[in-house]
């Protein structure tokens, strides 16, 4: 579904990503784990079209997307939940969700999608007319995911969905991600929460200093020596 081939990315003059190749197959949950500053967010930004790669190929559903504008990539069915959610705090919850359905393809099915999102996150239905800025951290993250789901994506990319959440909420967040995946959505997850994401993911890549240094089934990577020593202590 998503295929990256030898992607090199520069951030200002510094090379942030070195010849990264990875793929995500339909129906999978794939995790990209690695320490802070490894280049995980940069990689997601490039896939979404917010930042350009210097070289390499990115293929999504048979289309070359490495030179496409972000709005086209959303239209093709790839949606990203950015780091920290980046919800529109000055707007109501409902307006946030409506904006999620901005692309033409999704606008037609807005009402069905809204029902679907409310089903996944009943809390958002309760708060729909509230200003998004008044939501709690967990609710904001729900809104950010719900907003991305409103575009009815085929592939959902999540950048640190557990960031800043209390442990109980993190657990619930991962359960939700699993549930969304069971409904047929493919998921590419970037996380620092290594234990939970490796338990959740079918496959995972380990990114360090801009390079893929490990790859395997989620549960196998949990026993991977360098992962154990670096992240799980």
């Amino acid at each position: 579904m998503l295929n990256l081939e030898n992607v090199n990315i520069f951030y200002k003059e510094l090379q942030a990503i070195w010849s990264v190749s990875l793929n995500v197959q339909k129906g999978e949950i794939v995790a990209l784990i690695g320490p802070n500053g490894a280049g995980k967010t940069t990689l997601l930004r490039v896939i979404s079209g917010l930042h350009r790669c210097a070289s390499g190929k990115i293929d999504f559903l048979g289309r070359q997307i490495e030179k496409e504008a972000p709005e086209k990539i959303v239209e093709y069915g790839l949606s990203q939940v950015p780091e920290g959610g980046k919800i529109f705090t000055g707007m109501s919850v409902l307006e946030n969700l409506e904006l999620g359905a901005f692309v033409k393809r999704a606008r037609k099915e807005k009402n069905q999608n809204l029902e679907w999102v409310y089903e996944i996150f009943p809390r958002l239905a309760e708060r729909k007319s509230q200003q998004a800025g008044t939501l709690s951290g967990g609710e904001r993250q729900m809104l950010a995911i719900g907003r991305a789901l409103m575009s009815k994506p085929q592939l959902l990319m999540l950048d640190e969905p557990s960031f800043g959440l209390a442990p109980i909420l993190v657990e619930r967040m991962f359960e939700t991600i699993e549930k969304i995946n069971h409904e047929g959505l493919t998921i590419f997850l970037v996380e620092q929460n290594v234990q939970s994401s490796l338990e959740l993911a079918h496959r995972a890549y380990l990114l360090e200093n801009g390079r893929i240094v490990g790859e395997g089934k989620g549960k196998d990577l949990l026993t991977f020596e360098s992962v154990r020593s670096s992240y799980l202590g």
Binding site: A69, P70, E71, E75, P82, R147, A148, S151
Partner: peptide
């Protein structure tokens, strides 16, 4: 409010 999030919504900023 946030041009990056807006373009991730599919808005041509």
């Amino acid at each position: 409010q946030n041009w990056e999030a807006a373009s991730l919504m599919g808005i041509d900023i």
